[in-house]
Amino acid sequence: MISPLAFGLILVSSISFIVYGLTCIFSVKMKEEFKRFGLAKFPELIGVLEIAGGIGLLIGLYFPFFLVLSTGGLTFLMFMALFFRMKAGDTFWQSSPATVFMILTGYLFVVAVNL
């Protein structure tokens, strides 16, 4: 059974990843950021992965396998985001969203594995 804390974190994460994924796909400013990271060809792919992960978190509330899959994938995605931000020379503050979401989804991964 998912704790109320984990349930709330899953809802917040899901909404965040879906919104951010849509931003990756449709925002001109975000496409410029991806160029800065050396990932100019990938904003749509990353956006779709984030949307799929966010939806997977919601499905995972009912089917734990999807929670494991989604949290694991999103943790890896945020690890890579942090890597590319550091490579681009971003400050700690600029990298903090990726760091926070990597830790958050990593925590949810551990919760999901132990369900």
Rank of each mutant, 00 (worst) to 15 (best):
S70L: 02
L9C: 13
M102I: 01
A98H: 01
Q94P: 02
S70W: 02
F79G: 04
A112R: 03
P4W: 14
G47H: 03
V68F: 10
G106K: 02
Y62T: 09
S95Q: 08
A112K: 01
S14V: 08
W93R: 14
V100R: 05
T99K: 07
K35Y: 10
M102V: 05
K35D: 12
F7D: 10
I103L: 14
I103D: 07
F7N: 10
M78Q: 00
I59P: 09
F92K: 08
F101I: 08
R85N: 08
V12A: 14
L39A: 03
M86G: 04
I15C: 11
S96A: 13
T99Y: 07
K87C: 10
L11I: 14
K31P: 00
N114M: 14
A81L: 00
G89H: 08
S70D: 07
L45D: 08
L5H: 13
F63I: 14
K29D: 14
I51D: 04
G47N: 08
F63N: 13
F79D: 02
F84L: 05
V68K: 13
I18S: 07
L58K: 00
S13L: 12
V111A: 07
P64K: 14
F34T: 04
S13M: 03
A98I: 01
G60F: 03
F76N: 09
A40S: 13
V113Q: 11
K35L: 09
I18V: 14
L82S: 11
A98T: 10
F7G: 11
K41L: 10
G21E: 05
Y62H: 12
I103E: 07
S70G: 10
G89D: 08
K29I: 13
L57C: 01
T99D: 07
A40F: 12
M86R: 09
E32A: 15
I18Q: 05
G47D: 00
T23M: 12
E33S: 11
A40G: 13
L115F: 15
D90R: 06
T23H: 15
L5C: 12
K35I: 10
T91Q: 06
Y107S: 07
G38S: 11
F26E: 10
L108G: 07
L77Y: 04
P43E: 06
E44D: 15
A52G: 09
D90V: 05
S13A: 15
G8S: 14
L104Y: 07
L82G: 07
M80L: 14
Q94N: 12
K41E: 13
Q94K: 13
L67S: 05
K35Q: 15
L82P: 00
T23Y: 12
A98G: 03
F26D: 09
E44R: 02
M78C: 09
G56M: 05
G54F: 05
S96E: 11
N114Q: 13
L11C: 15
L9A: 10
V113I: 15
M102K: 07
G60T: 01
W93T: 14
M78P: 00
G38Q: 11
I55M: 10
I2F: 12
F101S: 00
P43C: 06
L61C: 11
A98N: 02
G89W: 07
V19I: 15
V68P: 00
Y20I: 00
I25A: 04
G73I: 09
F17T: 07
G56K: 03
G72T: 10
K29N: 14
L57M: 08
I15P: 05
V100F: 12
R36N: 15
L61R: 03
T105K: 00
G73L: 09
M78I: 12
E44K: 02
G53T: 01
L108M: 13
K41Q: 12
L104N: 03
